[in-house]
Amino acid sequence: MKIKHLLLISGFIAILTILYAFTSKATITDKVMNESEWKNLKVLPSTISNDSLKTLMKGYNKALGVKCNYCHSEDPSGKKGELDFASDSKKEKEFARHMILMTQKINAENFNWQNSPEPEKIDVVSCTMCHRGTAKPSESLK
């Protein structure tokens, strides 16, 4: 009987965790992923596909151990839980752009990036190498 209760409680907690993950304001919404024209892309190609952008952003989330609201500010229109992906109001977003350019430069100069048919997909040097799941790389070395 105790095992049944334990399994029931564990299952309930798992369901709540999954529901929270899908309702968190930091998740990428379907609305954003269905846009055909991206606004304010300064480093990433304006022709990036929805799937590629979503995959790339989720990779940044994992590499830095953060959610979308780490770089993206809340939507000023007041919609609770919505993010304004085009806004440059957070300094972390501009810093991320510099880091993307840095890793692209390192890869280009050291790993024959120019001769690749898809150079944007080369990631010999990536965010994870230094960040290791933390927003500040120095914290991952402790």
Score class of each variant (00 low, 15 high):
3 I>S: 09
4 K>T: 08
6 L>S: 07
8 L>V: 08
8 L>E: 07
10 S>T: 08
11 G>W: 03
12 F>T: 11
12 F>V: 04
17 T>M: 11
18 I>Y: 11
20 Y>V: 13
22 F>D: 05
24 S>F: 08
27 T>R: 10
28 I>Q: 01
32 V>A: 12
33 M>G: 10
36 S>H: 12
40 N>R: 06
43 V>C: 14
46 S>Y: 15
46 S>T: 15
48 I>A: 00
49 S>I: 13
49 S>K: 08
51 D>N: 13
56 L>Q: 05
58 K>A: 01
59 G>L: 00
60 Y>M: 04
62 K>W: 02
63 A>H: 05
65 G>T: 12
65 G>S: 07
66 V>T: 13
67 K>G: 05
67 K>L: 06
68 C>L: 04
69 N>D: 15
70 Y>H: 15
72 H>V: 00
75 D>E: 13
76 P>M: 07
77 S>Q: 09
78 G>K: 02
79 K>M: 06
81 G>W: 01
82 E>D: 12
83 L>P: 00
84 D>M: 02
86 A>C: 08
89 S>F: 06
89 S>Q: 09
95 F>A: 09
103 T>K: 05
104 Q>H: 05
105 K>Y: 06
110 N>V: 03
113 W>S: 07
116 S>F: 02
118 E>K: 14
118 E>V: 12
121 K>C: 02
123 D>W: 04
124 V>K: 12
126 S>V: 06
132 R>S: 09
132 R>N: 12
132 R>V: 07
133 G>T: 14
134 T>P: 02
138 S>I: 14
139 E>V: 11
140 S>Q: 11
140 S>L: 08
141 L>E: 14
